[in-house]
């Protein structure tokens, strides 16, 4: 009797194992289908997702070829590039404002990166110590633009950042909290990488691009490697932090009132960025005209000449300024009159 029970248990265990294997075999294609569906925009998934999954399930995994998978990739790309469904969720004006301000913020970070490049260019540059009054005036213009834009970004951005933080904290959304904490973590990593650079410079007894007048400059490999690693980390940290902040803001229910308020500081910031760009351009033109030998041959940043460094700064800053101004012109105020007639928009709160 006991043996029969044992056999029964073995049979049950075998059936359970087979059933589990069958379940796992079914779960794998389902996971693949769900993953493929995720390639499509959310508005498309809302409309066609269920029936699309049903279609893939009906086809069965054996009939689902590699070409079918490529076809789904292409279909998802098409749905993103040529959307046939209008995103009617949420409020169009709110979405446009949010998108505009996020773009301005991203442009501002690009401007900050190019601005730090300009200060890197001036660092230890003989032109920075030049007695040419016009050069100094151009630097004052750059500094004024940098100060005003920073202030404007803080005035417009901090209330939005605090609203996102408060909302994430009160609703316990850890993913948004993690996104908001990313810039702090990134900052610590950057500090760590530059402290490591200083330690390596100290141990090697030389600093990067440590060219003494009258001596042939021979770069120390360890120091140069540490320097470029730190620079790469700094740029990567800026990109990751910006993406994290932008995603956190996009995922947070923030009052349209705050976005509307932030438009003015955003415009001021963009104009101040334009002022900075004017200062940078003027500085290069003056330097090239009045101290061309130094401008064309002295070291700028990353071992490049001052002129090459200046061109890089000017181009990246121009892109940043244009992106910010175009975003504001296209999305900052457009459609406000129509939105004002939609009930309930202004009352949506954080």
């Amino acid at each position: 009797m006991e043996r029969v029970n044992d056999m029964g248990r073995t049979e049950q265990a075998s059936q359970a194992s087979q059933s589990q294997q069958a379940g796992q075999a079914q779960a794998a294609p389902q996971r693949l289908h769900t993953w493929l569906l995720r390639l499509y925009p959310s508005v498309w998934r809302d409309r066609y997702g269920e029936e699309f999954l049903a279609l893939l399930a009906d086809r069965g995994i054996s009939a689902f070829s590699f070409l079918d998978m490529l076809d789904v990739f292409y279909g998802a790309l098409d749905a993103r590039l040529a959307p046939q469904l209008a995103d009617t969720r949420g409020f169009p004006m709110l979405n446009r404002l949010r998108k505009t301000l996020i773009v301005v913020f991203c442009a501002y970070i690009l401007y900050v990166l190019s601005g730090t490049g300009f200060y890197g260019l001036l660092d230890d540059n003989s032109l920075a110590k030049s007695s040419l009054a016009n050069l100094q005036n151009a630097v004052y213009v750059v500094q004024a633009g940098a100060g005003i834009s920073l202030l404007a970004i803080l005035i417009g951005g901090l209330p939005i950042g605090f609203a996102a933080l408060r909302s994430a904290w009160s609703s316990g959304r850890r993913s948004v909290l993690a996104l908001l904490g990313t810039p702090i973590l990134a900052f610590l990593v950057v500090i760590g990488s530059f402290l490591a650079l200083v330690a390596i410079e100290k141990s090697q007894g030389t600093s990067v691009f440590d060219a003494k007048p009258g001596q042939v400059f021979t770069p120390n490999v360890a120091v140069v490697a540490a320097y470029f690693t730190a620079v790469a980390i700094w740029h990567l940290a800026a990109i990751v932090s910006t993406a994290a902040m932008a995603t956190a803001i996009a995922r947070s229910p923030i009052s349209e009132r705050l976005y509307r308020f932030a438009r003015i500081p955003a415009l001021v910031a963009a104009l101040a960025m334009l002022l900075t760009l004017g200062g940078v351009v003027a500085w290069g033109i003056i330097a090239n005209g009045q101290a061309s030998a130094q401008f064309q041959h002295d070291l700028g940043f990353y071992g490049l000449t001052t002129m090459t460094s200046w061109i890089i700064v000017t181009v990246t800053m121009t892109i940043a300024v244009l992106v910010a101004l175009v975003a504001l012109a296209r999305g900052g105020w457009r459609g406000e009159a129509a939105a004002a007639h939609q009930p309930g928009i202004a009352s949506q709160g954080a």
Binding site: Y48, F52, L55, L56, L70, D71, G75, A76, D78, Q84
Partner: peptide
């Protein structure tokens, strides 16, 4: 027809 092509065309025809 692949699934992506089918639904790409369906969305257009429906629109």
């Amino acid at each position: 027809l692949g699934p992506g092509t089918l639904y790409g065309a369906l969305a257009r025809l429906e629109k």
